[in-house]
């Protein structure tokens, strides 16, 4: 089992990396790009047979406390 966590900067937070990549894409001729947001992707391996609901609860807590900083980031958690 795997948990996948995608962390992205909140809308109100400056994302200079995203802006720089967006500009680079424009320079390369890729048109129609209206925004680039750069975040993090974390993959967590879980022991086989782990209770999905319990893992969801625990990882939500971990994502809130450690894996993301709720002041500046949002996250999405998926377990598969």
């Amino acid at each position: 089992m795997k948990a996948k966590i995608i962390i992205t900067p909140k809308k109100a937070v400056l994302d200079p990396q995203g802006k720089t990549v967006q500009t680079a894409l424009e320079h390369m001729g890729y048109s129609g790009v209206t925004g680039v947001h750069i975040g993090k992707y974390i993959e967590i391996d879980l022991a086989p047979g782990t209770d999905k609901a319990a893992a969801h609860k625990a990882l939500n807590e971990a994502a809130h406390k450690l894996l993301s900083n709720p002041v500046i980031e949002d996250y999405k958690l998926e377990i598969e």
Partner: peptide, 17 residues
């Protein structure tokens, strides 16, 4: 201190990277 919640806000990447 901001990560620990002892001070409000956060410190992010400098705007010019």
């Amino acid at each position: 201190l901001t990560e620990a919640g002892l001070l409000p806000g956060a410190l992010i990447r400098n705007r010019d990277l």
